[in-house]
Nucleic acid binder design. Structure first.
Length: 614
RNA sequence: GGGCCCGUAGUAUAGCUUGGAUAUCACAGAGGCCUCCGGAGCCUCGAACCCGGGUUCGAAUCCCGGCGGGCCCGCCA
């Protein structure tokens, strides 16, 4: 259900690289161009034609196979009445050796191409040496994109079900930047409407008037948060109980409705915004531990204050399918938009004339389109219908553009049930982080007796936070997952600490060689061990993975890649001596230095820590 | 009831958008590696595409129908 973002990122541009930025960004760019033009020419000579775009995608995706690049010939051969295997053999036989950096071979119906080991090594290490911290970054697209993510209501602390949004969104923003976009990250702060009013409404009432059940959520005899207690936790305490009571108690609900109406009309007491900000600050502090930050906080009330919601309502009333209900509410008859029957009437003003979430969100999106050609929203699966409603409303007001959506499924509580504060099944981000950092602390102490407390604490924080982030990132967003403590807190295998360890290992090795800063002299022909070749191939793939990840929104592809890279490094490290090597020493140091850069960039893109030691 | 998403070894996961070679990786299990630059590591082995149809030379991948799980169907957000 991932809506494929439009394909506007820079592809290989194999046939005509953009003249503005001629520099090479991907070691596979030229080999792919060579195969693409060479194979299509050979086929043409034989009266056969191949879909170049399909072949391009085939080549980009073929890096995981047994050959560096491979072209399946089943279809072309059949269409030309040829035997695929014979055709493959024939083409491999005539593949121009002169000037080609690739050797061709036939395996069944596949025409395979392999880079000479020395060529691959030279190309990859030289490119990494040139690009340095920009390796993995693609050419600029000169396109601005707005990524909205998290946007959780400021009504209590994050549980890990909600934080999947922030982690995916933040990572996608990083990847899009690497893919050449100018990215602005928005957090839409919902300070209008009934849900948003609950917290400030209850806290604005004297405690003596609180419903007993709400009062019971507070620690007795305390007037405010204790030292060390975060505002989101303290002020969020009554929220679940109060929101439940509102569903049962009509008088309470009416009271809140009146309060919410004042908020919408701009007459909110100062405490309303103040409380929202305090709770939000608590939430953001937790996200900051995960390395998540925002360029802009867009408060929903802004669109009421500046009149854009009113203007939007006026436009909607003029829309082709606008209708007024008997009680005065206005709606769009959206029967033609393919929405489920029940929701085909989209209310955009209540009977009392106040706006709804969808209406305000529409105004927000129009403001985004005024500044950004591309708009991306990261949304939970529960917002799928809302995204369709938004699309329909945009169409109704004549807006031709649409946001792109990245959806993710919720994380379920350990038992498999829904993560719910009220049911007590929620796992809080802060608790998870604290637990992870504590575990990391123990691990560091067990390994490093030489470090002082500050260093140990710093490393533990980085390891713990990275572990949490990666445990969520590594799974495809559209998979529903069940939270498991053992997995989130695991430090070996497919985890962040494994990645951080690789980076630290490479770093200390280079320190010992006194060669931390590349480029290093190397002779590509010396890097021929199978493990070295595997590592080189892994290194060479980063730009392609960034491109794929940016194009599809599959941020977990980068997480998978990171593990493959680290894995290749560990194998190589184990198999091939570096410092003790003879003639190959400098070349191997260059390989390790390139690995350190590539791993470092990958860790940055995933929002994981780079540790020099751990 | 209707719509959407997910279903891959004991557990967890990649591959699905673009059909193609022996289906990825980890944990757990069995066995091995400290003469070696960091053992949070490395090497070896066993084990999987929910079921049934269809399209195709070829289906984990596309289509249809089941089954199981999740989400949604509000003048909430």
């Amino acid at each position: 259900m991932m809506a494929a973002p439009l394909e506007r990122c820079s592809g290989f541009s194999m046939l005509s690289p953009p003249p503005t930025e001629p520099e090479e960004v991907d070691p596979w760019e030229r080999p792919c161009t060579e195969v693409l033009s060479g194979v299509s020419a050979l086929l043409k000579e034989r009266g056969l034609s191949i879909d170049l775009e399909a072949l391009r995608l085939e080549l980009e995706g073929s890096s995981g196979g047994p050959a560096d690049l491979s072209v399946p010939l089943h279809r072309v051969a059949r269409q030309g009445g040829r035997n695929p295997a014979e055709l493959a053999a024939e083409l491999a036989g005539v593949w121009p050796a002169r000037g080609s950096t690739l050797s061709a071979s036939a395996k069944g119906a596949y025409l395979n191409f392999d880079a000479e080991p020395a060529t691959l090594a030279a190309r990859t290490l030289e490119l990494i040496g040139t690009r340095r911290e920009r390796y993995g970054f693609l050419r600029s697209t000169n396109t601005s994109v707005c990524v909205e993510h998290t946007s959780a209501n400021p009504n209590g602390p994050f549980h890990i079900g909600r934080v999947r949004n922030a982690i995916i969104g933040d990572t996608y923003a990083r990847i899009l930047r690497a893919a050449g976009y100018r990215v602005t990250v928005h957090y839409y702060v919902d300070d209008v409407g009934r849900q948003a009013a609950v917290i400030s409404w209850i806290w604005s009432n004297p405690r003596a008037q609180w419903p007993p059940a709400a009062l019971a959520t507070l620690p007795p005899g305390r007037e405010g948060p204790e030292a060390g207690e975060k505002a989101d936790h303290y002020y969020g305490r009554p929220y679940p109980v109060v929101s439940a009571l509102l569903k049962e108690d009509a008088a309470l609900a009416a009271d809140l409705g009146e309060y919410a109406r004042k908020v919408e009309e701009g007459h909110a007491p100062p405490a309303h915004r103040e409380l929202s900000e305090r709770v939000l600050a608590g939430m953001l502090a937790s996200l900051a531990r995960l390395g998540i930050q925002y360029d802009e906080f867009v408060w929903e009330s802004r669109f009421l204050a500046d009149g854009s919601v009113d203007r939007m309502i006026a436009r909607l009333k003029q829309a082709p399918h606008a209708v007024q209900e008997e009680n005065g509410a206005w709606a769009i008859d959206a029967s033609g938009y393919g929405l489920p029957q029940e929701s085909s009437r989209l209310i955009f003003t209540r009977a009392d004339g106040t706006s709804l979430y969808a209406t305000r969100d529409l105004a927000y999106h129009e403001s985004k389109f005024a500044s950004f050609p591309r708009v991306i929203d990261v949304l939970g699966a529960d917002h799928l219908l809302h995204s369709k409603v938004l699309d329909a409303l945009l169409a109704e007001v004549g807006e031709p553009r649409r946001p792109e959506f990245v959806f993710y499924q919720y994380i379920q509580a350990p038992g498999g049930s829904k993560m719910s504060t009220r049911a007590g099944t929620a796992v809080y981000l802060d608790d998870l982080l604290d637990e992870a950092v504590e575990r990391a602390h123990t691990e560091v102490l067990a390994r490093r007796e030489d470090l002082d407390d500050d260093a140990v604490g710093e490393i533990a924080e980085a390891v713990g936070a990275s572990a949490v982030r990666y445990s969520i990132l590594r799974v495809a967003p559209d998979k529903p997952v069940q939270f498991r403590w053992e997995e989130a807190l695991s430090f070996e295998g497919r985890t962040a600490p494994f990645l951080l360890y690789s980076y630290a290992r490479a770093t200390t090795l280079l320190h010992k060689a006194d060669r931390l800063d590349p480029p290093h002299p190397f002779e590509a022909g010396q890097l021929t061990a199978p493990e070295e070749r595997r590592l080189l191939r892994a290194l060479s793939r980063l730009p392609g993975v960034v491109r794929y990840s940016a194009r599809t929104g599959h941020v977990h592809a980068l997480a998978t890649y990171a593990h493959e890279l680290a894995d290749a490094f560990h194998s190589c490290y184990q198999a091939v001596p570096v410092l003790r090597a003879g003639a190959e020493r400098e070349s191997r140091i260059a390989l390790v230095a390139a690995t350190r850069i590539t791993l470092g960039v990958t860790l940055d893109l995933l929002g994981l820590a780079r540790l020099e030691r751990m």
